[in-house]
Structure formats: structure tokens, C-alpha cells
Design a binder for these strands. Sequence first.
DNA 1: CATACGTGGTT
DNA 2: TAACCAAGTAT
Length: 354
Amino acid sequence: MKPGPVALRELQAPLLAWYRAVQRDLPWRRTRDPYRIWISEAMLQQTRVEAVIGHYERFVARFPSVQALAEADTQAVLEAWSGLGYYRRARALHATAQELVARHLGVFPQRAAELVQLHGIGPYTAGAVASIAFDAPDALVDGNVERVFARWLGWELPRASPELKRRSWQLADELVPAAGAGEWNQALMELGAVVCTPRKPRCLACPVAAWCTAHRTGRAEALPLERAKPATLEVELLVHVVREGGQYLLVKRPEQGRMAGLLEFPSIETAPGEVLWPRALQAEFATGDELARVRHAITRHRIHARVVEARLLRPVVAGELADARGARWVYSSPERLGQLALTGMARKLCALLH
DNA sequence: CATACGTGGTT
DNA sequence: TAACCAAGTAT
């Protein structure tokens, strides 16, 4: 007998009981402030809990309210976000804070249908803020929920596939309780995060294994199915470290596109493949000794960087200036490097240089 | 609807 | 160590 939504309702009480007993103590579970819930949800997108905790604490200390975030400089927001990746999220967060202040007097809408209208807030985050902060009866589906549902129902579907998402949202809508939606949604995700894990699911510790089709058929580890992965691109990079009077030369990336507005060391692509910005002209630098080799990965790209000591061939005054392409060149002292909005590669290099 | 978007930890 | 993975969204 295949479990349907009706049979699955039987597992709601045991799952909630389990969640109340074993849930992790996370900073954003100690508040009902929609602003803080929202920040945590934005940070948690495609990002591990352990990586978020520190950033979350610092972020809400620095920007304690929607108003504070709305009034902040973009560069300060990027700086607080630096290291989390997907920097578009930080810009969306900033823009949405300003929109909330301008059009909602800084007050959060309480239902997912309204929240999803805001920039950077998609169906998942809308459901999360509505249900967790306001206990609105709104459902939510993330990677955890998709995996848990695929196993409960024995869906032989690829991870993150449109069909799996469609079915998951339908089931989530059917299961979400009229009261206690926030707790239910978090219980579902918690199960996926600590028991019903992608690899080596702990079915023996699962409070609802009795209702699980995949557990019964031995398919738990196999579901959801793997999805075809795109080929990785290999990129060779020459990175210049220019020291002038105890300061490092950095270039600010354009405000649009990949890692928008972040600072990095000037670099030159040295092999065919993806064109990485900035493509500082070889002629602008005198290249010296090799300092290090660094491997770095960004989505679908593996970057092999050769780091060389360098100096600029044309004079550049200290401070900020713009080159012919409109790029901003910035000198920074070593002490300040750690506090800037740097790309991952640049941060890795800083650690290496000290 | 497929693809782009980052990083740090794990396997 | 290369591949995989993590509380998605915008285009």
C-alpha cells in the first residue's frame, strides 16, 4: 500500500514530537523577529548552517533592523556578506530593506503570497518567513523537503527536477497545518538536515521510518536520483600582487555580473576558457618572482592561479583611481584587507601572504 | 525551463 | 584531490 497524503498525516505527530525533543539550538530559532528570520533564511540559501552562524550574528549586530539595513552603504552590506557567496543575495537583501521601508513603512507582510513579491524572496523564503515569524499557514519546500518527500513517497525523480519540485509543493501544501506551520516546516527541514541526509541517511534513528516507502524498499540512499552534471571549465590565471609603501593594490569588480562590486587582486587570464574580469593588460605590470600557486573553484569553474610579485609600469597614485575601463583601483593596508569585501580568491591570497 | 550564481566543509 | 553538497532565486 502506497502512502498518500492521508496516511502521511499519521506521521505528523511523531515528527513534531521528535523535533521538539532534538532540534538544534540555532541563533535564529531564538527569535520571532521577521527581520532576523529573513536574514537567516537569505543566508541559508545554498549555504551550510555552520557557515551561516557567524555571519548571521555579525550581520544582525551591525544591521539590527530593516531600517538600519536600508540606510547602510551597499559596500558595508557586501562587506558583512563577504565569504558567504552568491553576492546577488546581499544586494537583493539591501534593495528589499529599502523597499520595505519605502512602501511598507518597514513592516513585513505576514503571508507568503505578499512576501514573494519582494526582490530576492522566492517561494521558499516567503513560506519560511511567513510560517516561522508569523505562524501563517504557508508551506515551504527546500532541498531537504524535496529529499524527504521523494523518499517517503518513493518518487524516482532527479534531485531538484521541476517534476520533483512540483510534486513537493503540492504535498507540502496538503500537509501544512492551519496552526503551528512554522514548527512543522522546520521539523521537516530538520529531519532532512540531520537524519534524512543526502548520503547515508540514518533510517534507524528516523522517527517516521515506518511510513517511508524508500526505507521499506531499500531505496532511501538512492533517492532522489542523481542529476546530470555540466562539465567543469578549467581556467588559468596570473595574479599580480603589487605592494606599494606597505599597501596592496586591489581592483574593484564592476557593479554588475559575477561577484559584483567585490575587490580582488589584478589578474590576467592566461589560457583559453572563460574570460574572468578584470583582464588587466599584461603591459601594465612588470612580473617578478612567483609567490604561490592557488587553486580555487567557483561555480562550474576550476581556477588555477599563479601568484606573482609585480609592480605597475605606469605610475599610480595611492588612494582610489579609475582606469580607462572604468575599473576602480584601490590601495589597502594589510590590516584592512581582512575587513574588505573581497572575492574568495583574494581572501585566500591574503591568508597566504601573511 | 535551463542556466548562472560562490563558498567552505566532506567524501 | 576532484567531486559533491548546503534552509534558492532571477533571468
